[in-house]
Design a protein around this nucleic acid. Structure first.
Lengths: 195, 195
DNA sequence: ACCGTTTCGTAACAGTGTTACGATATCTCC
DNA sequence: GGAGATATCGTAACACTGTTACGAAACGGT
């Protein structure tokens, strides 16, 4: 009997897209509920009904980021060279984080005081984690690496994220050549050191 | 002829101490100019005269963080084992970042939208950088590592910061044993892989 | 044509960073 | 000692933020 609802899951997706776009365009500073509501042609109470609060919206951005990263990593098919596949994984991971620095911040730093991922949110990265562990395990099976697959995956991902954070902060070098070289030195050394 | 100035460098140091303390106690959320002014028994305009704006205050926190980290790293004397010294450096680095997670955020993540270190601020980490490069160079001279000292130092620091970020976000493992093991696996593998 | 209900968005609240400006405290001079 | 000049201080305002109460509006059913 009342008017038909507009604050549906469809609108939720639209608002989320706007939020991702706005974050990429204007960074953390422009990420206000008013700006998002305006760009999505709706009102702030709609955003609050759909996401609870700004932290909920950031949570959704966080999950979307991991979904996209997992897609990106899965897009590259496995070859018959497990080591090359791990190097390619690092390349893809790096490319994603550098192409979406603000999104990377939400995923791995905490650019917003009101959202910090807890145990609840650790499930978001499950697909990415599984994919990395699988590629590491293949390398172990091929006798290219030695050790526990999960431990090695953590080491590898930590190195990649550390390098990407440094690159995004322009801390890793001034020229593209030096940045590329330091990525290569670090990633290859870690793999070599794992036997 | 007017009243004597209170907003002196002495007050500046006091305000900075309060800011560091408040950041450590309440995190990014509690870091407001009003709260800092109140705890320092002064007014917000005083904070603005001393630091320009909140970004300036964060800049001062950023520099203070690097000063403390450099002190912490320099406190450990060099031994006659360059490899052990590099492992100890990683331990000290880790201990500092884990003991001061919010400060580490200001230094290496960007928890505040209004301050992000640019080329101007890269000088802050000079002492730390020099210290790491020096220890790496010693290891190269001792034939324990091979390659360019600066490249290796970047790789090593990136790995340490990536691991520390993961540990602070409780992403590296659930038990202390597994976290410690992953640190060990990663750091030793990188050193081993650099010959 | 009206009514009841539900959904909507305006407008308010408390808090933030920032600053204009009037109040204040001190030194100097008489 | 008192009065004035003046630099310094902090209150109070502004524009903005996240968040929500509540009155206005729109629809289906009678």
């Amino acid at each position: 009997m009342p008017r038909p609802k507009q604050r549906t899951p469809v609108l939720r997706d639209q608002v989320l897209d706007v939020a991702l776009d706005l974050l990429a365009r204007e960074g953390a500073a422009g990420f206000s509920t008013r700006a998002i509501a305006r760009e999505a042609s709706t009102s702030t109470p709609a955003v609050y009904e759909l996401f609870g609060n700004r932290a909920g919206l950031l949570r959704a951005v966080f999950f979307a980021g991991f979904r996209r990263l997992a897609e990106r990593l899965a897009a590259r098919p496995e070859s018959d060279d497990p080591r090359a596949d791990l190097l390619a994984l690092a390349d893809d991971y790096r490319a994603f984080l550098v192409a979406h620095p603000e999104l990377a911040g939400v995923m791995f730093s905490r650019p917003f005081a009101d959202f910090s991922p807890g145990p609840e949110e650790s499930q978001a990265g499950a697909d990415v984690r599984d994919l990395v562990v699988a590629r590491v395990r293949r390398a172990i099976d091929a006798r290219i690496l030695r050790g526990d697959a999960t431990d090695i995956a953590h080491a590898y991902v930590s190195l990649i994220q550390g390098l990407a954070a440094a690159e995004n902060a322009r801390r890793l070098g001034t020229s593209k050549a030096s940045v590329d070289r330091r990525w290569r030195v670090a990633v290859e050394a870690l793999l070599d050191g794992l036997r």
